[in-house]
C-alpha cells in the first residue's frame, strides 16, 4: 500500500463524512425532529413506569434507551440502506469506479453519521433526563468513554456489513429496515434490563452490539445498574471488543462478495440509469 493510496482513502473518508457533518446544519428543522421525536416514546414509557410505581432507575433506562435509539436508526436508515439509495440516485457506480477502497466510503458514512447522531442522542438524553428527573451516578468517566467507543465501533461495523448486504436489495431494503426497528428495541432491551429476557435470549441478542453496550452503560451511569446487569462490565467490554473485530472483517468480506455478485448479475445499476 503506497502512502498516496492511504491519503486518497483518508480523503475519501473525509469526503463521504462531510455531507453528513454539514447536512444537519443545512436543514436544522430535521435535526430538531430527530432530537424531539424519541422524546415522545421516552415520555410514554416513562409514564407507564411511573403509573406502575417502578424504581427510579427504570425511568432512567427508558431515557438512556430512547436516546440510544438514534444510533440504531442511523445504522438502519443511514448505513444499511445507504448503498441501496446511492444505487437509486445513480452514485453507486461512481463509488465503485473511484480508485479507493470501498471500505473508505463506508467508514466515511460511519464517521459522519456517528458524529451527527452523537449530538442528537446527547440532546435527547439531556432533555429526557431533565424532564423526568433522572439521577446519574458516573462511577468511572474513563470506562464510560471506553464502553461508548467500543460499542460504536462494533455497531457501525455491523452497519457497514449491513450496507454491503443491502447492496443488491430493491424495495425490500425499506421493509427490512422497518422490520428491524421494534424487534431490535425489544431484543436489545432498549427500555428494560435485557437480563429479564432470560440468559439465552439475552445472549442471542448480544450479537447486536447495542445490547451489551446499553447494559454496560447502565452499569456505569446508574446507581442500581449493576443489579440489573446481564454480564459483568469487564466481560461486556471484552465481548464488544471482539464484536468490533468480527464486524470489521465481515463487512470487508461481505462488501467484496456482494459487489462481485452485483457485477455478475447486473444489479449494481437500475434499468433506466
Amino acid at each position: 500500500m503506497t502512502e498516496s493510496y492511504l491519503l486518497k482513502n483518508l480523503r475519501a473518508v473525509r469526503g463521504r463524512a462531510y455531507p453528513r457533518l454539514i447536512g444537519s446544519t443545512r436543514e436544522p428543522s430535521w435535526f430538531i425532529f430527530d432530537v424531539i421525536l424519541p422524546l415522545f416514546t421516552i415520555a410514554g414509557y416513562a409514564y407507564v413506569y411511573k403509573f406502575l410505581d417502578a424504581r427510579a432507575e427504570l425511568i432512567g433506562y427508558v431515557v438512556l434507551g430512547g436516546a440510544m435509539t438514534a444510533f440504531w436508526l442511523n445504522i438502519l436508515w443511514s448505513m444499511a440502506s445507504q448503498l441501496y439509495w446511492e444505487k437509486e440516485i445513480g452514485n453507486l457506480p461512481l463509488y465503485l469506479m473511484a480508485p479507493i477502497s470501498r471500505m473508505s466510503i463506508l467508514a466515511g458514512m460511519a464517521v459522519g453519521g456517528l458524529f451527527e447522531t452523537t449530538i442528537q442522542a446527547a440532546m435527547t438524553l439531556a432533555i429526557g433526563a431533565i424532564a423526568f428527573n433522572v439521577v446519574f451516578s458516573l462511577a468511572s468517566p474513563v470506562m464510560l468513554i471506553v464502553v461508548f467507543v467500543v460499542t460504536m465501533i462494533a455497531l457501525y461495523g455491523m452497519g457497514m456489513m449491513f450496507a454491503s448486504l443491502y447492496l443488491l436489495l430493491g424495495r425490500e431494503a425499506y421493509h427490512l429496515s422497518a422490520l428491524m426497528m421494534e424487534p431490535v428495541y425489544f431484543a436489545s432491551g432498549f427500555y428494560f434490563p435485557v437480563k429479564h429476557l432470560g440468559f439465552w435470549a439475552a445472549a442471542g441478542a448480544s450479537i447486536i452490539p447495542i445490547t451489551l453496550g446499553l447494559d454496560a452503560l447502565r452499569q456505569i451511569i446508574f446507581p442500581g445498574g449493576t443489579e440489573d446487569a446481564f454480564l459483568s462490565l469487564n466481560t461486556e467490554v471484552a465481548l464488544l471488543s471482539g464484536l468490533c473485530v468480527v464486524f470489521m472483517i465481515l463487512s470487508r468480506y461481505a462488501l467484496r462478495y456482494m459487489e462481485y455478485l452485483g457485477k455478475t448479475t447486473g444489479r449494481l445499476t437500475l434499468r433506466w440509469q
Binding site: 414509557y45 407507564v48 413506569y49 406502575l52 410505581d53 417502578a54 424504581r55 427504570l58 421494534e182 424487534p183 428495541y185 425489544f186 431484543a187 432491551g189 432498549f190 427500555y191 428494560f192 434490563p193 429479564h196 429476557l197
Partner: peptide, 13 residues
C-alpha cells in the same frame, strides 16, 4: 415485537 416491549416493561415491575 412492539407490544412485547411494553409487556416486558410491565413484567419487570
Amino acid at each position: 415485537a412492539g407490544t412485547l416491549i411494553l409487556v416486558l416493561m410491565y413484567i419487570v415491575v
